[in-house]
């Protein structure tokens, strides 16, 4: 993405964002509330539109609306803070909907793939339940399986653990670390510094709608360059 700008009315939420992410790279976006990190994540599959600049995925510019956008979104997996599993569908149906409707797979084929994925994220036993019958951690792992079912080129995580109990955070993070190890390209907006240390190739620190600092996790945590990052880290790492 280059020269990306976005306004919410008067509020300039993204200011001249330039960011390039290589295939297989895991980028963690960190920053205080309101810094624009979630918005940044949501512009990448155009759940938020941008006013200026351009975003390209795999060399392809993000189309404005319509069928091309839908096709492009199918290549970008997204995991939300509030899970957003389809409430009226079973766990299995949640995972098979996209492959059947978007990829045109047969039901049997989609279900076979879905069971493999649900097994991988450890919720295969819940296949026939509805989302509300699952714990938050289980729901989020299903959401990851739902995104993976589309064979995405890149996965976006928008604060995937912020709505979870501490105990459930680790089960979700384990799945994410596994994905990172397998070479998935990931952009993760999170407050989980442990995940950033363990799995990130790069840390992007945002504040006030700007990217303040982009470095390796090691450098970022031990020797942050900007005052703003030093200040931010000193507050959160004290506890």
């Amino acid at each position: 993405m280059s020269g990306v700008n976005k306004w919410f009315g008067e509020l300039h939420v993204l200011q001249d964002i330039d960011l390039e992410i290589a295939r297989g790279e895991v980028v963690v976006v960190i920053g205080p509330s309101g810094s624009g990190k979630s918005t940044l994540c949501r512009t990448i599959n155009r759940l938020e539109s941008i006013e200026k600049g351009e975003i390209a995925i795999d060399g392809e510019l993000l189309p404005a609306e319509g069928k091309q956008l839908a096709r492009l979104r199918s290549d970008v997996g997204m995991v939300f803070q509030s899970f957003n599993l389809f409430a009226h569908k079973t766990i299995l149906q949640n995972v098979t909907l996209g492959p059947i409707k978007v990829r045109g797979k047969s039901k049997a084929e989609a279900e076979k793939q879905a069971r493999t994925l649900l097994d991988r994220v450890g919720v295969i036993a819940q296949s026939d339940k509805y989302p509300a019958q699952l714990s938050g951690g289980q729901q989020q792992r299903v959401a990851i399986a739902r995104a993976l079912a589309m064979d995405p080129k890149v996965m976006l995580f928008d604060e995937p653990t912020s709505a979870l109990d501490p105990e459930m955070i680790s089960e979700v993070l384990d799945v994410m670390v596994g994905l990172a190890r397998d070479g998935m390209t990931m952009i993760v907006v999170t407050h989980e510094m442990g995940f950033a240390r363990k799995a990130a190739n790069r840390v992007v620190f945002m504040d006030g709608g700007r990217i303040v600092e982009t470095t390796e996790p090691e450098t970022f945590f031990n020797n942050p360059q900007s005052d703003r990052a030093q200040n931010f880290l000193s507050k959160i790492l004290n506890h």
């Binding site: 759940l47 069928k67 839908a70 979104r73 997204m78 939300f80 909907l97 996209g98 409707k101 978007v102």
Partner: peptide, 23 residues
Amino acid sequence: VSAGQAEASRAIGLTFGQSLREV
């Protein structure tokens, strides 16, 4: 219906019509 339901269906690549019908 919460906005997240429509967002999630758009995020897996459903078109507007499909997301309305299916979700």
